[in-house]
Amino acid sequence: MPGPVARLWRGLWRGGLLALTLALASALAWGLWSSEAESANGIITAGDLDLELGPFSWAQTTDSVQTAERQTGASPDSLADFVAAAGDQIEIQQEITTFLSGDNLEAELSLWWNGATPSGWSGAFQLRTAAGELVGQAEIGQSLALPAWAVATTADDSSETGWTVQVELVIDPPVYIDPTNPTAVPTADPTAWGGLILSLNQVRGQAAP
């Protein structure tokens, strides 16, 4: 009879085999999403989906701030240096290129906060063609489907498209501290938030017309 140690190792070995099998089945399922194969032994399709960032710019568009005094910048770093006040409106322009290649590869763009949603802030984004035509708009945290002409439909198809993502942020409310204490930390909210994450994800179903 095998000892307790031997039984333990046998259990681990069988458990590893089960995990391997389940995980491989799961991986195959992922692959099927981009192909029309019906067989459980279907081949993983070599699709591709890519998102590249182009030029970036931002501008303070606050109505109550005179145009000549509005702050602007052309890099994420300069935006990080900017200090927004309650009531500020900020517009971000990010040019992107999407690349879709594969069989029936449809995708959507989503924009979300990297971390917790800043309390009181609101924002939305628009997707425009390189020519500036509005494709769609959504709140931050939601998604926009790429139109049908920008997706890949057959195995040999590919689509490379330039876009502009335009983000509008409204900063509110003010964050108070005790001004008599130079090292005071705001009690209500953090005053620095992680940035915005733009994500391109494959979706199933009919692309937007």
Partner: peptide, 30 residues
């Protein structure tokens, strides 16, 4: 297993950080 799952997922999702940190200024009155 890890390698298979990783490569499968990488093909169908891509993301990029649009901005760095965003800062809001402070208000104080005392």
């Amino acid at each position: 297993v890890t390698g298979l799952a990783g490569s499968a997922q990488a093909l169908w999702s891509d993301q990029a950080e649009l901005t760095g940190q965003l800062n809001q200024g402070l208000v104080g009155f005392a």
